[in-house]
């Protein structure tokens, strides 16, 4: 890397190189007077000139007292930003056309509360503000970014800024972390019904399982009954899993693939597949997904749905 590019990276963080958690140190804090700060300096200069001209000792004193305030504001604005920690940035997924949310989690480890941190990202529709991060605690902000296309949507360079406490100075800092949200293809409106259905759709067939038989495990999500948690696995140190209970009837299994859409354009195909994934979830049928290079076995549930949608989102795109 050339020196110029290194310098540019250091100054403006143009590449997503920052690893989280990241503590905002003095190297990456910028601070400049706000327009109001400039006006304040102008007023101070005017007051100084008046003091000089009329030889007002107390005029000098007032002028320098306010200069002290101005300087102290500089320091406090800086201190408000320095040591601020960006713990992680959570990215929600969403369908193209909707907005995804990035939630940076800020922490104030240095034992001081932080105030009025403003977060700006290039794509976000509006800036988010964290009013206060209590000392040795964390607070989250939510940056809503509108989407247009499927794929990975990088957050881009996040700007943390603050004019606290007096609005005379603005301190800011760039954090460019390789965080991106997955944007799923937009589901086709009024998609045709699900294609081929494997297996028998009727409920009372040969290997009907008794209600209550465990058919598998899935990730625990809030709201699941504790009685369905696979406690044995938890005891072994695994994550919370919930036992999936076999329904009385064997649900239909749908095989989803690009060809099944009978469309030509890739985006349209993906859009229809997305709609089908959602429909299949809705109907409670198992579905598998076959994409060139990716194959997801038949299943259902939120994890499976997410895997499928993620596969659809990034299909045919390079690495993020």
């Amino acid at each position: 890397m050339s020196a110029a590019r290194k310098l540019r990276q250091r100054l403006f963080r143009t590449r997503p190189d920052d690893a989280l958690p990241l503590t905002v140190e003095h190297q990456r804090i910028y601070i400049l007077p706000t327009p109001r700060g400039c006006a304040f300096v102008g007023a101070l200069l005017l007051m100084l000139v008046a003091s000089i001209n009329y030889d007002l000792s107390l005029g000098y004193a007032l002028c320098f007292l306010l200069t002290g305030l101005f300087t102290s504001a500089l320091l406090n604005t800086y201190r408000n930003m320095a040591g601020l920690c960006v713990h992680h940035i959570e990215a929600s997924s969403g369908f193209a056309g909707d907005a995804v949310t990035f939630s940076p989690k800020l922490g104030a480890p240095a034992g001081r509360a932080r105030h009025a941190i403003e977060l700006v990202s290039p794509g976000a529709s509006e800036r988010a503000t964290v009013t206060v991060v209590e000392a040795t605690s964390t607070a989250s902000a939510a940056l809503s970014v509108p989407t247009t296309r499927r794929g990975h949507l990088p957050l881009g360079r996040l700007t943390l800024a603050s004019t606290w406490p007096l609005g005379l100075w603005r301190a800011w800092s760039y954090v460019h972390s390789p965080v991106s949200a997955t944007v799923w293809p937009r589901p086709e409106n009024d998609a045709p019904p699900l294609p081929v259905i494997h297996g028998d759709g009727d409920g009372g067939n040969a290997h009907a399982h008794r209600e209550g038989d465990v058919s598998g495990l899935r990730d625990w999500i809030p709201g699941d009954s504790p009685s369905r948690v696979a406690w044995k696995r938890v005891a072994r140190g695994d994550e919370l899993k919930v036992r999936l209970l076999e329904a009385n009837h064997q649900p239909a299994t749908t095989e989803l693939a690009l060809e099944a859409t009978r469309l030509n354009a890739l985006e349209a195909q993906l859009s229809r597949l997305t709609a089908w994934v959602l429909n299949a979830e809705h109907q409670g049928s198992d579905y598998s997904l076959q994409l060139p290079g990716t194959s997801i076995d038949a299943d259902r549930g939120s994890t499976h749905r997410k895997h499928s949608l993620d596969a659809l989102a990034v299909h045919g795109l390079g690495a993020p």
Partner: peptide
């Protein structure tokens, strides 16, 4: 802040 700025003043 005024106290902090006092030495400068």
């Amino acid at each position: 802040m005024l106290l902090q700025g006092a030495p400068i003043a």
